[in-house]
């Protein structure tokens, strides 16, 4: 996949920041407005998929290498598990909202919900990284298969 025309590339270059920022907004304000970690994570993945479609595979691979992407995926899962087991150390239960009683008592604030924004960030990181990873792998695979069948012409003929 080589990428598209210069018009598509220019527009995608401007739009990618806006899409990415919208995903970050959806994640951070997930406990006050509609949205949350799942929707925001998918939007983050969609911003990189936009880059993948417009600029081609090599560009994205330099921008976000696959090894870093897998590490981000594992980091999100690990952070969510850590938020879950952290209260166990201080004598609470699994998944107790341990930050809530240390925060100021006021509703509808950005920091009013204890561990929920932290969980949102972890979930968003995990969902975005893993979905981008699988779409990237699918695109790589399709390319390899196409060149293979065109080069040999044998694999698509299973009759023998």
């Amino acid at each position: 996949m080589k990428g598209m025309t210069v018009i598509v590339k220019t527009v995608a270059g401007w739009a990618k920041m806006l899409v990415f920022l919208f995903g970050v907004y959806i994640i951070l304000f997930g406990h006050l407005t509609p949205g949350g970690g799942f929707a925001g994570g998918v939007i983050l993945a969609a911003s990189y998929v936009l880059l993948l479609l417009a600029f081609g595979r090599r560009f994205v691979e330099e921008d976000l290498p696959l090894a870093l992407d897998s590490k981000l995926d594992c980091l999100g899962a690990l952070a969510f598990a850590l938020i879950a087991v952290w209260p166990l150390i201080w004598g609470g239960g699994f998944f107790v909202n341990f930050l809530l009683k240390h925060l100021p008592e006021s509703a509808l604030n950005l920091v009013s919900a204890g561990t929920i924004p932290l969980s949102n960030i972890a979930i968003g990181l995990k969902v975005g990284a893993s979905l981008f990873l699988v779409i990237f792998l699918l695109s790589v695979f399709s390319d390899d298969h196409g060149t293979k069948t065109r080069a040999t012409g044998r694999i698509a003929d299973p009759k023998e």
Binding site: H31, G36, L103, I116, S119, I123
Partner: peptide, 24 residues
């Protein structure tokens, strides 16, 4: 109890966060 104005968010990440861990 959770401080989150979005009740759906408070359900998936506080009341039923164990479910979300399984989903992840």
């Amino acid at each position: 109890q959770t401080g989150a104005a979005n009740i759906v968010s408070s359900v998936i990440l506080d009341y039923r966060a164990y479910d979300t861990l399984g989903e992840a």
